[in-house]
Write a protein that binds this DNA or RNA. Structure first.
Lengths: 229, 229
DNA sequence: ACGTAAGTCATGCGCCTGACTTAAAAGTGG
DNA sequence: CCACTTTTAAGTCAGGCGCATGACTTACGT
């Protein structure tokens, strides 16, 4: 409550510095390519084992990065999910999954690294488990999932699971790709994170609404009812 | 044309051994986590510089792996594209993109590694360029793209590009995930590569057909007041 | 039949890594 | 004000890495 700099403040600052440095290095060079030493140096720490000291291990560090952002995304999403309460429009619930992530990156301002970091962490055998655990067990995400399910009650359970995976992969990797394009100064088709999220939501809505082909039966109809867009 | 084992036969065998070993190690541990030494040893080569010698660099090795499989996929896809000639069914062309990859993995028999390898290579900054170049400049793929375009002539060019990216990401990562599940002996929702491809094709058809939301005013603020400032 | 060049092997060098040890610095609580 | 704990700094160590080098083996062309 006073202006004094306590010990825990300074420790928190050090941890934060390490988190930020690690996030950037990871995003730019990949998780496996960045050593704990590099991270410590980049964070201005003289000790080459600062990462181990503060986070136990590289995996612990990765988890901490994910948690930090997840908390903020969670806040945005929870508000959005509450707004959508009772909605029967599929698109609303899909937006609840996509928009908060995009919004969070927009809030952070250019440049960001968490998008690329997420994609790399999810693609890496060593950390995918930890990341999923940290990011997927979110109350708001579960509620959005339920809302979505209510819009598509007839979708077979396996197909739902399958498309859940698809949606996750698509969201993370497309956001990472846009972030990369931004970082490289290239042109992006959508000129804001919000618009990118709209494009993603469009596509995911189509994906979820796609009719399920029964294998053995002939081809699916070409034109699909996109009634609720 | 006698039965003798020529030198070039033995060299080709060595190269192939290295390719196979590398593919497996890469798929299981990630590109960055596997050293050229490990690959050489795994391939039974006494020399720790075998990779450099035969492929110039790790990037060259990665390219060679991609090329090897791309050739076979290309063959399958070209046949399929010719079959679809003149078709106006969107689904046909999407299938031309998905099925050959799945078919190829099915042909290889369990276990396979190329699916996971592809996903990792595409997610890695260091190699994504080389991989794209190797895999995306395929005549059959371009023709399928044209066929697909003809089915959706009114789709804005930026959206088409965007969804092309989506389709690629989705295909590669979902195939990788299925391969991973197979390798770990877990249950997979679809019980064959073909059926998995059908599920993927369903989803992608919906994705491509999804209506495009026009975002209203040109300048949406990037940082949106969610809640209150 | 023999010289040459390609392929393979073995080894050493400099660099970087994570883990570990030791010591200094800085905040905390009696 | 002092003993104590936590945090940061600095340095050591064994091991793995890519790369360069040189010797050995062997198929091929003349």
């Amino acid at each position: 409550m006073n202006g004094r700099v306590t010990r825990s403040d300074r420790v928190a600052a050090t941890r934060e510095t390490i988190l930020v440095a690690a996030e950037r290095l990871f995003a730019e060079h990949g998780l496996a390519a960045v050593s704990n030493r590099q991270i410590s140096q980049e964070a201005g720490q003289g000790n080459n084992t600062a990462v181990t000291y503060h986070f136990g291990s590289k995996a612990g560090l990765v988890r901490a990065i994910v948690r930090k952002h997840t908390e903020q995304v969670e806040e945005i999403r929870m508000r959005m999910v509450l707004d959508c309460d009772g909605s029967t429009r599929l698109r609303d619930w899909i937006a609840c999954m996509v928009e908060p992530f995009a919004q969070h990156l927009a809030d952070l301002g250019t440049p960001t690294w968490y998008g690329r970091f997420s994609a790399q962490a999810m693609s890496d055998e060593t950390y995918r488990e930890a990341v999923s655990q940290e990011a997927l067990n979110s109350p708001s995400l579960l509620r959005a999932g339920e809302g979505l399910h209510r819009c598509l009650p007839d979708l077979p359970i396996e197909v739902r699971r399958e498309r859940q995976d698809m949606a996750r992969q698509l969201m993370v990797h497309m956001i990472a790709e846009r972030e990369r394009a931004l970082a490289e100064g290239g042109t992006t088709p959508r000129d804001s994170w919000h618009r990118a999220a709209v494009g993603l939501t469009d596509a995911l809505t189509g994906l979820w609404l796609a009719p399920v082909t029964e294998v053995g039966s002939p081809a699916a109809p070409e034109t699909v009812p996109h009634g609720n867009a």
